[in-house]
Design a protein around this nucleic acid. Sequence first.
DNA 1: TTGAAAGCGCTAACAT
DNA 2: ATGTTAGCGCTTTCAA
Lengths: 363, 363
Amino acid sequence: MHILYTDCAHEIRRSTLLPIQETNLATIYDIAKAAGVTAATVSYVLSGKGSISQATREKVMRYASELGYRPNLIARSLIKQETHTIGLVIPHIINPFYAGIAETVERSAYARGFRTMITNTYEDERLGAELLEDLAARRVDGIIALPGGLSFSAIQSMIASGLPVICCLWEEEEGQEVSLAVGLDFKRGGQLVAEHLLGLGHRRISVIVDVKANGRIDHHLRFTGCQEALANAACPLDAALVSNGDSSLESGEAAAHQLLHLPNPPTAIFATNDLMAIGAMVAAWKLGMRVPADLSIIGFDNIALAPFTSPPLTTINVDRDRLVKLALDLLLSIIEGKQLEPPPLLAPELIARASTAICPASR
Amino acid sequence: MHILYTDCAHEIRRSTLLPIQETNLATIYDIAKAAGVTAATVSYVLSGKGSISQATREKVMRYASELGYRPNLIARSLIKQETHTIGLVIPHIINPFYAGIAETVERSAYARGFRTMITNTYEDERLGAELLEDLAARRVDGIIALPGGLSFSAIQSMIASGLPVICCLWEEEEGQEVSLAVGLDFKRGGQLVAEHLLGLGHRRISVIVDVKANGRIDHHLRFTGCQEALANAACPLDAALVSNGDSSLESGEAAAHQLLHLPNPPTAIFATNDLMAIGAMVAAWKLGMRVPADLSIIGFDNIALAPFTSPPLTTINVDRDRLVKLALDLLLSIIEGKQLEPPPLLAPELIARASTAICPASR
DNA sequence: TTGAAAGCGCTAACAT
DNA sequence: ATGTTAGCGCTTTCAA
């Protein structure tokens, strides 16, 4: 009796409120009605919980597939208070470094039962805050946040509201670190670059570094790491040899173009990410310079493309798989209510390929 | 009275069922209670509908921000029967071509009030079907589906269930097209390649084409378009000069390596996507060949990176912005219940850069 | 202008 | 082993 009543109500509502052409998907009530049981029973067999007789189970399953039943995860999320969805906030998916991260996060999260919503900030903090708000409104279970387009306050406000946020690869001045983070030893990365270039005999070394319009150095740590190592080797960085970019191919080319037109141009260029390094490579090519014979170029990130530039790009590797695993472990453990210690900084690693070579002057 | 009762029930439930540390976000009931009105009233002021006195409106708004209210989009979705979310299914975000599409879709959809769930199939049809099912279970309002990892039957089953699906850039034999699609004239793209290479005097032309393990040519149309144009110019494609890849950098390099070791190697290589073309460029570089002096290379897609390879890559441009706009227009109009005519095929365009040049033999 | 009440599709405690 | 019931947070019709 109750079933009939409920069902009736369903039908009334549907015919009045929903657009006509909509093919309504079956609900557990439809299955229940067909199988002559109650919705709770259907829920039990579908979820595999409770104790249900084999006969009922089979009957329900049959009708479920017959009616093309597809669970409504929205309804499930509402009652369970969890969406099994995480948010991933990155600056720009067009940068293969972030695309690689996004891929790994999506894959690993999916393997652990979570879907991920990938969102780009385009380095815009207003948009970034808005996107975070929206993710929270959509009740994602947690967020993995990469820097660029995300202000500290925006992050803090999420955390304050009880939403787990893991900050990944943030590169701030010491002391500004957020508590739940998995980071990389960027400073060491910068050092490795300096050591590599110095070891090849380079003395006139340029750096193309990502600096935002507001003057903030985005790649602060990798820059100072390099700068300090150079100074320690009695080969301090010449300010005239430092140029700015915005992490894009275009900016890398423009910066290199400018540097290579200097009266006393550099023999090596360190671009603080691979995209700018690739931009620098074309700039050299367009000037008829050969890499690495005339000019050494080194990047940072080791994007999937790095081994496939002509010549293959020397760069600093970031262990993406490990990074993502740590971040996800941290996030999911918090979601499950456990507390995990944030891991130590990951160690960068120099990958020597063919874009760097002995300094011509020192030959 | 009722408010108190309801609220009481809320609190009981919360304290018994939810994990302890969870910071519960305010609901409209919390606001209602604080403001001394009913939940319906709160809903009205928040949505801007209904007629509400200025005084009530302000009071509600004040408490809303005071309590840090964030709407629960899950609850909203459940009752409104719409999530304002679309699904985007692509093979592999690591391919900059798809990253570009994904970026454009996300941006444009967001501008129109929709979030997008980006999902990768990794060319795995089993996974693809699973992901589609999941998107449907999450009740996305519609799906934009790119080929690779998506079987016809999986798509059909979504459409049959009433979920709008727009197929983008499918490259199938004629007659197999899906109804709601926005496509590109791939065949014409292949022709453009052939004409360009022929015009530069090349006769020994290689093609590196994406062929799946099951023998299906993924880049079928761009391949046959080129093949036919070559045949029409009395310069039929030599089967020995055709090699297979899987759209990856690696496969492009491997295929080119093999082709360039042939007793009578090609003077030009057409890779059916830019990634393989870039792979081919390194292969040439590793063999000490100069592009384009010794070997011309042409790709397909015009990824953001194409102008920044050394030398910049000649390729076929796909108007991504227009493509995405058309797909989104189509999808959103269907979601809104309107019907729109699928647009005509987009026209590809050859972008001549520096990776192709006059055939050395014909100089 | 506001309140009462029903219901979106599902889960889970409790009762039988 | 199965049914009853309440409720997740919200929207919306209907009544007052």
